[in-house]
Design a protein around this nucleic acid. Structure first.
Lengths: 195, 195
DNA sequence: ACAGCCATGTAACTTGTTACATGATTTT
DNA sequence: AAAATCATGTAACAAGTTACATGGCTGT
């Protein structure tokens, strides 16, 4: 979803060809190291965007070398892009892998949840240290994307660490009371639900 | 990735069939409303797990009604599961959709980054309010998953909001200096890189 | 000559979603 | 009889990754 609109946005700036879109994406979002968009995805996305009528192939440019298939954004594309810009992005809290891991660890007998939590805590601390060191090497003016991303990473890592502390607190509160089995509701048509 | 190991973990608890795995997943992770795993995914994942040798079909149980194909975890499966439990989950900061949106908004001329930021801020505030209200309706002892998830959501939303403030600060710092175009390096083989 | 960029793709695979298909069972 | 659950799947699609294939241009 992100790459699709990113390509659309870069085409709104000026017409470009696939290879150029890929470099521009890396330049804007923060380099090949942080988000390496594969050529396959760029060309596939361009085809889908063209099929949807959001971009159009403008023609082929041929200098000295291979031909470049130039794409441009359409009016419909511009409209879709604006809608994207001015709509909110919902963070998906629930589809977090560690959350699933923790909940499964709590019901599966032969694993210690506290060790699972501790493993994650150590991991997050290492990550926090790594990005804090990395931060010093970036310059706000020339590497805005990198700086903003690290700011975000730090805040999220701190939030995750505080959450892990909270989880341990909550678990102590309920003190080894096993999770209830899923409540089996009676089969068939349920009676009218009273509110 | 999460669902795969969740199914494995639930089978480590006891042998189950596909339909039961789906209900158990919902019961443990927090209900159909928060993460509705589709039957298609459960059965597809079971096939893949069986092919990998992590689970095995134990046989068919036939009561009054349709047959149930019971699966159980294998020793290899148990090993893989333990490795999963005791390894860290890396949060993916960079593949955040709003981050991409912001960076693209900053280079695309015809959109106001501050309005994009404000839209997201309003969205996050609404979400924060919604989960704060929802929190009151849950009970720690009987709805642990829901409570923990909301704790996490609140902390992340607060982190995101603080980050948005920080972004505006950073943008004022560089005060409408346009982002530099991607630096075009000379083509051909680069000379030896000096460290 | 060779390394490495410029430029385009195809094919296979993974994880997950959506829609469809089938049929038995159970309670109101 | 209708509604809803129990139980299993197939097919098509979307987003993304990995690997492969092709060929020209350019600087050391």
């Amino acid at each position: 979803m992100s790459v699709r609109y990113a390509i659309l946005g870069l085409l709104a700036q000026k017409p470009r060809h696939g290879y150029e879109l890929r470099s521009a994406f890396h330049a804007v979002v923060g380099g090949e190291e942080t988000w390496n968009v594969k050529p396959a995805q760029v060309y596939a996305t361009l085809s889908r965007l063209a099929e949807a009528g959001w971009v159009a192939e403008e023609g082929v440019e041929q200098g000295s070398g291979p031909e470049k298939r130039i794409y441009d954004i359409t009016p419909q594309g511009r409209q879709a892009l604006e809608q994207w810009f001015y709509s909110g992005v919902a963070p998906e809290h629930q589809r977090d892998e560690f959350f699933v891991k923790l909940m499964i660890a709590l019901v599966t007998g032969d694993v210690q949840p506290r060790r699972v939590i501790q493993t994650q805590r150590v991991f997050l601390y290492r990550e926090l240290h790594a990005v804090t060191v990395l931060r010093q090497s970036y310059n706000l003016r020339t590497q805005l994307a990198q700086v903003l991303m690290i700011d975000k990473a730090i805040m999220h890592l701190e939030a995750d660490l505080r959450w892990l502390d909270m989880v341990e607190g909550r678990l102590e509160e309920i003190q080894r009371q096993p999770l209830p089995e899923p409540d089996i509701r009676p089969r068939g048509r349920p009676r009218k639900v009273e509110v």
